[in-house]
Design a binder for these strands. Structure first.
Lengths: 225, 225
DNA sequence: CGTAGGGTTGAGGTTAATCAAGTATGGTGG
DNA sequence: CCACCATACTTGATTAACCTCAACCCTACG
């Protein structure tokens, strides 16, 4: 396991000893598609790195509506912050979007690891900082933009993540059901559908099932600025 | 200076040696009311603890509208996360809301401090985790609530911060101009004003200048659930 | 007394949620 | 292969929230 941990961005480049230390507390966990990993308000037990599969982190409003904060792809971590809260209560819930394998680091033992290795602590700081930035952008985006703007922004980010250039004729594949995407963008499937159609009507892109072809990249990007 | 640092929640209870280490890199900085501390996109130079005064952290939308993410009160820190970003670019801007004194920790020297003291690193992790939680709540609140809900929530948080009980006849003092509050709640002064009036019409509270008297605490709290 | 800034109010338009109904799509059992 | 159903998605009509713009009020202050 130690060497395997180095494959994850969060741990890559760490010394052998650090990796061994991490491995000594790591536990592999499996979740079926749709299975709950933890629920908002419950005690945080530790943090997770996704080895295979995909996880959604979400909050539920008082009225019962679900809003997805993040979709965690294989290779990335989540729930780091929870282990540092005084009452270690999770501020959100997590559920496997597909059959998923995670590497789990139990809270108390992992806190001890952090105290012992400043290299690992620094990685953790970097990882948490990434979350802060992401959420800062999220807050900015949510409060300042329309659904249309958020959707275009999502497509742009998606293209970077899949490492394709965002230009005319580029074809993007929506990797999650549209209703999940709608929740991710803070809206509902109906509005999502209509927004996609509007962009299509304007000739900016073409939708076919779950693939989207960019027809006018500069036109789309103009909407972000 | 070392002993003085222990007054801040972030550093309280640290050993003498850690405090000395911190003090050796700390620098006191002064900002006039309205003065910019840093601007989104610029390189992060370090992180700050507010000794006196108040600071707003905000983002500006493409259309030029400002949205305040946080108001940092005396005693609290901000911009921790920025020093860990690869390109260390600030994801938001900061400006003094009044004459302000900060304790500034330069990035490179502070990173060295973190490597040397795991106690300080753990404090830093705790502090960043606090930001993650705050922003998670913010995202939840922004996307799931109406202005009315956010306003009531703000009043509730304000009462906790000023350590008064949130019940009938409680008088709260808005400690920032209403237009700042509007921005903090992700709206504009007009809507803010109307929302306040609506709550008043419903007999839930009474507004006089910048003080608010709670008339029906349970009625207000019902709106959050 | 005039002006400026913060705040409030009104009319009108836009965005997006809700409710209700319709159209694929993809199994599953016969 | 087809009838059936469940689920995902789409579309339309209606409604509520809230932003925009424009005007107005009030207090402070020269």
């Amino acid at each position: 396991m130690p060497a395997a941990l180095a494959r994850y961005p969060m741990f890559s480049g760490l010394e052998r000893g650090d990796l061994a230390l991490l491995a000594s507390v790591a536990v592999r966990q499996r979740f079926e598609k749709g299975e709950t990993i933890f629920i908002e308000g419950n005690e945080s037990l530790g943090f997770y790195v996704v080895e295979r599969g995909r996880v959604k982190v979400y909050k539920v409003s008082p009225e019962g509506k679900e809003h997805i904060l993040h979709i965690i792809e294989a290779g990335f971590s989540f729930a780091e912050a929870c282990i540092f809260f005084e009452e270690h209560k999770c501020p959100a819930s997590a559920e496997a979007l597909e059959d998923t394998v995670t590497i789990f680091f139990p809270r108390v033992r992992f806190l001890d690891v952090l105290r012992r290795s400043s290299s690992i602590a620094m990685r953790m700081l970097g990882s948490m900082a990434g979350w802060v930035r992401l959420m800062a952008e999220e807050v900015g985006g949510l409060s300042l933009s329309t659904v249309e703007g958020r959707l275009v922004h999502y497509l742009f980010v998606l293209s970077r993540r899949t490492k394709v250039h965002f230009k005319d004729e580029t074809v993007l594949r929506l990797d999650v059901p549209k209703r999940v995407l709608a929740s991710r963008l803070g809206t509902i499937p109906e509005t999502f559908s209509r927004t996609l159609r509007k962009l299509q009507t304007k000739g900016l892109l073409k939708v076919e099932r779950s693939t989207i072809k960019i027809l006018n990249a500069s036109g789309l990007l103009d909407m972000l600025e």
